[in-house]
Design a protein around this nucleic acid. Structure first.
Lengths: 140, 140
DNA sequence: GTTTCATTTGAAGAAACGTTCAAACGAGTC
DNA sequence: GACTCGTTTGAACGTTTCTTCAAATGAAAC
């Protein structure tokens, strides 16, 4: 199947290389590589998840999915500074997760990516489920 | 309903406070607040998404969802250092996203949270879909 | 035109993150 | 027991991220 020795090379001692040079199981490496999407897709997906990888932005997206809000009111909901809120919104706007319209002096924001909102809600539900199970999950 | 004036207070000029003191629309703030999950759930969900908010960990999780791999081979798949890979795995292990078993000198890892894998795959698909649309999404 | 006020923006400082290097660990092998 | 080697770990370093403060923008009110 392959030009190098197949599975269990190093384990069975048929290969002279170590991990740094050859692989333990070339077939597995190939299959795993084949399962990975194109690099730019990975980047975009990671960037999307990074946005909802922060408690403040999680709350922002959930709040704006439920209710259209001006920056001022959103800051109130979050118990955060207006400035901090605006900075985060800028971030999320750049990723296309929120849209806004201006009405006089006010800027009304709302969630604009239903798929990401759905993923976020699934994530919250999953977090709820994990509480009853044996997952440690003690990240900082 | 509330002790402060209702909707459009500031806009209609019936309230003397500004954004810092009162809110523009108290009802909306209340509804948005009601839509937010408990704080610890938000933290856990954010922590989970943060894990898959980095390209390297996205690839790790996708690779380990497709194939059980030892650290050495996983590093090969990622084109990364064994040390860097191990550090990330430690991170993901702490969040319960991966499990491992040892076989001799080798440590075989695999994805252990199907729900998170599913969310990740949905995210990748969504990233693919967004390419065809008008989303800016100009992340780094 | 001046004032008021919601929002945005930039810069600075602190904290968190990811990578690298060197060393330690632990399970096999001789 | 000494050795090999995959893996883990800790510390150091540079980078990114988040928050805060101060100032700027822009739209309405007077």
């Amino acid at each position: 199947m392959s030009s190098v020795e197949t599975a269990q090379d190093v384990i069975t001692g048929t290969a002279d290389g170590c991990c740094e040079v050859f692989v333990v199981d070339a077939e597995r490496v190939e299959r795993a590589r084949a399962a990975l999407p194109a690099e730019h897709l990975v980047s975009v997906a990671a960037a999307l998840f990074k946005v909802i990888g922060h408690p403040t932005r999680v709350r922002i997206l959930l709040a704006l999915a439920a209710e259209e809000l001006c920056v001022c009111d959103l800051a109130q909901v979050l118990d955060a500074t207006v400035s901090a809120t605006s900075h985060q919104l800028r971030n999320m706007r750049a990723m296309g997760l929120v849209h806004f319209r201006t009405e006089g002096k006010l800027a009304y924001y709302r969630a604009s990516d239903p798929v990401m909102v759905s993923l976020l809600q699934q994530g919250v539900e999953h977090a709820r489920d994990r509480r009853s199970e044996s997952h440690g999950g003690g990240g900082t």
